[in-house]
Each structure stands twice: as C-alpha cells, then as structure tokens.
C-alpha cells in the first residue's frame, strides 16, 4: 500500500506530461456566428459564408484531425455572446457593438482581426407619411433592434442630424417585427440593414443612411478568441487568422464582386440591395482585415460612446484587448503584408 502511494507523484508527473502533450492541439475548434434568419444553417456575414462554403477551416485543420464546429445564431450578437460566456465557442466573428457589450460585460476575449468595415444602417420611413429625412423623425415612433450592430449607428445618425434618442419614440423590435409594424402602419420608421423588402412592397422609403457619416462611425465586424484558448493554442489561433486573411483576400478582390454578391444572395438577402450596398466602398476597403490605428480608434470611440449612452456599464482597455501578434505572423506567412492599406 505504501509503495503504491510513493508511486503517485511519478504517476502524476507522467499524467501531466500526457495532458501537456494532448494540449498541443484541440480535438475540435468551435466557431460562433450571427446566423441568417431566412436560410437555415447559413451565417449572415460575407466572410463567414466564404469560410463555411469553401470549408476553408476544415481544409486547414484536416491534416491534424481537428474537427470544426460552427454555430449560427439567429439572435445575432447576443446569441454569440451567450455561447462565448457559456464556453461553447472558441472563436466568434460578429458585429462590433455586441463585441464591445460582451467584453464590457466580462467576456474574456482577445480581439485578433477585423473582417468587415463600413456596413450601412438604413432608415426607412413610411411612404404615406412623407418623412423628409432623419431630422423629420423628431417626435415620431421608430423601431430598431436594440443590442445589435444597428443601434450605435442609428444614434450617431440622429446626433449628426441634431437629434438625440430622446427626440424620437424608440421601440425595441427585431428586424422582422419592425418591418411587420411598418407594414401595419403601427410605427413611423425603422432602422435595418442593407436588405429592405418593405421598400419593394411600397410601404417604406429610405430617408437616411449611415453612408452620410464618416467610415469610422459605421458598423464593423471582427474576430475574437477566448483568452484561455489563445494561451493554450497560440499556433492554432494564428492558423485560424490565416484562414480569415485568405477569405478577406478573396473578398477584397474586385474581380470576385459578383461571386461575393451571389454568396450573400444565398443567405436570403436581395441582390439589388446588396449590389448597391457593396458599391459604396471598394472591396479592398470594405474587407480590410488589418488591425490598423483607425480600427483601434473605432473601438475606443465605440466603448466611449456606449458608456456615454449607458449602453454599457463599464469601459475596458481597448489597447490591452487587441492582439495584433497573430495577424502579423499570418500576414507574413501569406506574403500579404502590403496588400491592404495600413
């Protein structure tokens, strides 16, 4: 019996060695994305769709026997945050506002890559009310999905037009309900993304959009990783970033513009609106993934803005949160150091 006890430390050391070896690579890497609400099983964002459609992650990690799991949340950013909080996702590529609210709320993530910048929020007014523009929203009811990427650009758009959130009667409605409310004439205007079928139905018209605002104030998306995962598997994180850079490289190529629109049409969005939305910026700007100074400033501004507007309760250090090391290593490996504007 005593000999058996003496052998325990040795067994423990051997076990630790075994687990350390096993920790070199995970069995599965789990990704969380906002999902399409129209086509089941599809992410809503372009870069995520490229990666899923082309199985870029599966190809990258096939030789290691690492499985890729993707979850698409119809509840968008808040759903992704819940998955991260519950430890059900290692990586997430989603909108800047839920990224910021999640981090401010205590998620232990690192921001490792930008994936999309300059997405527009559109303000649709009821056709029969003849709303002249954003300034004319004063005193009117306005439906928007709070907590999503739509909220900060909407508030910024109001501010740019001399209004505050208090000047309008904001109603928290998800995008589907907001459009139904507009059709039912129960609400005066709504804020939605590029896809806007209510305009086709003749009940709404675009009265403003964030394209009027500076690029840095519009919605962006980014890739985050759980801190623990990054500490444990730094090489895996670099390889995931490499895959995202490849997808962004593809999405930045003007020659692929129509292919990209087709990929997005397959998520249920409407071609003509996607075409006009994507015509607003060169693809190389829209899908510049670099963690530039501008990107850092954007997130610092968003954190300040969210705190000022009581959308988050405490700020966090953006400089400490952003980790450029994976991006720089992956860019070098791909020879793309000078492809995007810095």
């Amino acid at each position: 019996m005593k000999n058996w006890i003496k052998a325990l430390p040795l067994v423990a050391v051997l076990f630790m060695g075994f687990t350390a070896q096993a920790a070199e690579k995970p069995k599965v890497i789990r990704f969380a994305f906002p999902g399409s609400t129209i086509v089941l099983g599809k992410p809503s964002a372009l870069v995520n769709n490229i990666i899923v459609d082309q199985q870029l992650l599966e190809k990258e990690f096939a030789k290691d026997g690492i499985k890729i799991e993707v979850s698409n949340f119809v509840t968008a950013g808040p759903g992704v945050n819940e998955a991260l909080a519950a430890g059900l996702a290692d990586f997430a590529n989603y909108g800047d506002f839920p990224i910021v609210t999640g981090k401010a709320g205590g998620l232990k993530t690192k921001f490792i890559l930008a994936t999309d910048v300059g997405a527009n929020t559109y303000i649709i007014g009821r056709t029969d009310l003849h709303i002249k523009g954003v300034k004319d929203l004063k005193g009117r009811s306005f439906g928007i999905f709070k907590g999503t990427n739509l909220q900060p650009p909407f508030i910024k758009l109001l501010l740019a037009n001399g209004l505050t959130e208090k000047d309008v009667r904001t109603v928290n409605l998800n995008t589907t309900d907001a459009q139904a409310a507009l059709i039912a004439k129960s609400i005066d205007a709504i804020g939605i993304g590029a896809d806007r079928p209510v305009v086709d139905l003749g009940v709404g018209e675009v009265i403003g959009d964030t394209n009027q605002l500076p690029l840095s104030t519009r919605a962006t998306t980014g890739l985050v990783v759980q801190e623990d995962f990054a500490k444990k598997y730094p090489d895996i994180v670099k390889r995931v970033v490499k895959v995202y850079l490849q997808a962004n490289r593809f999405a930045s190529d003007e020659k692929n513009r129509e292919v990209l629109l087709k990929i997005l049409v397959n998520t249920g969005a409407k071609y003509k609106y996607l075409k006009s939305e994507y015509a607003l910026l060169p693809l190389k700007v829209r899908h510049n993934p670099l963690l530039t100074q501008g990107n850092t400033v954007h997130y610092k501004d968003l954190v300040d803005f969210s705190e000022h507007n009581k959308l988050i309760r405490k700020k966090f250090d953006v400089d400490q949160w952003i980790d450029k090391s994976y991006e720089q290593a992956a860019l070098k490996e791909l020879g793309l150091e000078n492809y995007w504007a810095k």
Partner: peptide, 22 residues
C-alpha cells in the same frame, strides 16, 4: 450575371494565385 469562370470553391487558389477572374 453569367456564372463566374472561377467558382467560389477555388478560394485558396484564388488568393494564392491572385487570379480571381470572374
């Protein structure tokens, strides 16, 4: 819009060869 001559499946080669010719 005609079908692009380079299918989306070719993402990697497109990136590597810089030849995404749709």
């Amino acid at each position: 819009i005609p079908e692009p001559s380079v299918k989306p499946e070719k993402t990697e080669s497109v990136v590597q060869e810089n030849a995404g010719t749709a």
